[in-house]
Write a protein that binds this DNA or RNA. Structure first.
Length: 499
RNA sequence: GGGCGGGUGGCGAAGAGGCUAACGCUGCGGUCUGCAAAACCGCCAUUCACCGGUUCAAAUCCGGUCCCGCCCUCCA
């Protein structure tokens, strides 16, 4: 597999330290709010990468941290009159709710800064001992000039950077580019005791320390959003390599941004959309598909139309799975041999799917091959005989492959219903009961050739985001938007009353 | 000012020297259907921002021009 390594700026063959293992670390969110769509992209991208590496047979150790000690958390806690750590803990819980809906696997470990303070203090002390850091009034700074390779990740030279001169000048620092490893606590802020007095870690040191702690001095892949390249990841490299003398991460992978009207979606611009709000309009599996249908390094523009398109596209794939189930009707022809020609086209698609992902994780291309497979299966369903065991085998095994490959990207396991109803089981079951009644009325109307009445029901449900499709086996429903149960019940009563 | 990435059909988006420029959405024609929907079959870029160059061969390489985004400051 080849991946684009930000360190070096080109695609490189992925050679892991241990041929059968991948150690990867992904920068997780700072937990002071619900995650927004921009936060969700790296989660989905790197979760998918992890799944693919596992599919290829690697034993993957996946670490994703939570930043639970941070200026913004402290500020938010002060605003809400809450304890910073408790506030962070609350948003970690909320994070998992969102991540689960998106079908993101749990990391091997989700370390938190607050639980690694002694490790961090050790690392800061070690850097001071080695002359890479110095203490001033309870703050500790990393001496950037002591690390000659500083800038190798982001591709900038020290001297050029200072030309921009937008760095805040702090007379106490040896060099304006030096950054904080440890910050002295101000009154009212949370703190831990350290050799430099009471304080807390700077932002960058946590990732270096936790990565090293769980994965060793050198890891295979370090991932995150491209806005972390500088300064965050540049600083991580400086700290870690200055301390251990080992290359910190062999491969650095960065995803592109989500944009809104071509502008970066960010908290500071205020143009962000909380995942949770999006999930009231679109199912989580659609959001996941949307995030993975474009190559991870490309920018991805967001608006409802794009999600609507993703909904239709993913629906096409999932529809094939449903149609295949209907075609097979419980038959499970797994073991029947396929005709050579069909065997070969399935094998080809499986191979091309992997080839696409092997080329810098090209999910867009890989998904294109899924659509080819989908069309192939559909055409056999359309022309095949459900009673013919060869046809069953083609459709059944094709669908199995589609499901398996889709699962490599986590496409078929996410929440399928809308965020505002999925947790309320009562709503779903009563929805189904109501729909049964509608379908029964409509079926009777069709038998009576009362097509006006039948169409009235179909049109009404369509307006509620529920699509009815007639088949030889009866009608089936598809949900396209969050239905309004109250309106459904009212209409049902009206129709029943009208009899 | 410095660094990085990009401009491909109506839209989204792959392709990075040589097969008919993928795939999805939209649109159009056909099959199926009570009518639809879904599904299937077929059609929809002689052309890849612009201008030069290299090459037997360029959307892909080189030079220049014009636009756009991001990073250099907390941000995924």
């Amino acid at each position: 597999m080849r991946v684009y390594n930000t360190l070096g700026g080109r695609k490189e063959e992925l050679r892991t330290l241990n041929p059968h293992k991948v150690n990867m670390y992904v920068c997780g969110p700072t937990v002071y709010n619900f995650i927004h769509l921009g936060n969700a992209r790296p989660l989905v991208v790197f979760d998918s990468l992890r799944r693919y590496l596992e599919y290829k047979g690697y034993d993957v150790t996946y670490i994703q941290n939570f930043t639970d000690v941070d200026d913004k958390i402290i500020r938010k806690a002060q605003e809400e009159n809450d304890d910073p750590l408790r506030l962070a803990e609350r948003y970690i819980g909320e994070y998992f709710i969102d991540a689960d809906r998106l079908n993101i696997k749990r990391a091997s470990v989700h370390p938190q800064v607050s639980q690694h303070i002694p490790d961090i203090i050790d690392a800061v002390g070690g850097l001071i001992d080695k002359g890479h850091a110095y203490e001033v009034d309870g703050d500790v700074y990393f001496r950037v000039r002591s690390f000659p390779e500083y800038g190798k990740l982001s591709g900038r030279a020290m001297d050029e950077m200072l030309a921009g001169a937008r760095v805040e000048v702090d007379e106490r620092k040896d060099d304006p580019a030096d950054f904080a490893l440890w910050k002295a606590a101000k009154p009212g802020e949370p703190y831990w005791d350290s050799p430099w007095g009471q304080g807390r870690p700077g932002w960058h040191i946590e990732c270096s320390v936790m990565s090293t702690r769980y994965l060793g001095d050198s890891i295979d892949i370090h991932g995150g959003g491209s806005d972390l390249i500088f300064p965050h990841h540049e600083n991580e490299i400086a700290q870690a390599e200055a301390l251990t003398g080992q290359p910190f991460s062999r491969y650095w992978m960065h995803n592109g941004f989500i944009t809104v009207n071509k502008e970066k979606m960010s908290k500071s611009l205020g143009n962000f959309f909380l995942l949770r709000d999006i999930l009231t309009k679109f199912p989580a599996d659609v959001v996941r598909f949307y995030l993975i249908a474009t190559h991870y390094r490309s920018p991805l523009d967001f608006d409802d139309g794009k999600l609507e398109e993703a909904r239709k596209a993913l629906g096409r794939l999932k529809n094939t799975l449903l149609l295949a189930d209907e075609f097979l009707r419980g038959n499970n022809p797994d073991t029947t041999d396929l005709p050579e020609e069909n065997r070969r086209s399935f094998d080809n698609i499986t191979e091309q799917f992997a080839e696409a992902l092997d080329d810098d994780f090209n999910t867009a291309l890989a998904i294109a091959h899924l659509f080819e497979l989908s069309r192939l299966i559909n055409s056999h369903i359309a022309s095949g005989d459900p009673g013919n065991s060869i046809h069953q085998a083609i459709v059944g095994q094709g669908a199995d492959i589609l499901r398996r490959l889709g699962d490599v990207l986590g496409l078929f396991g996410g929440a399928t219903v809308f965020g505002n109803v999925e947790s309320e089981d009562d709503d779903i079951s009563s929805l189904e009961v109501v729909l049964e009644s509608f379908l029964a009325i409509r079926q009777q109307a069709r038998q009576d050739k009362d097509y006006a009445r039948a169409d009235e029901i179909r049109n009404f449900l369509s307006g509620q985001g529920i699509r009815i499709e007639d088949t030889s086996e009866g009608a089936r429903c598809r949900y396209e938007a969050p239905p309004d149960l109250t309106a459904l019940n009212a209409k049902l009563e009206e129709m029943q009353g009208g009899r």
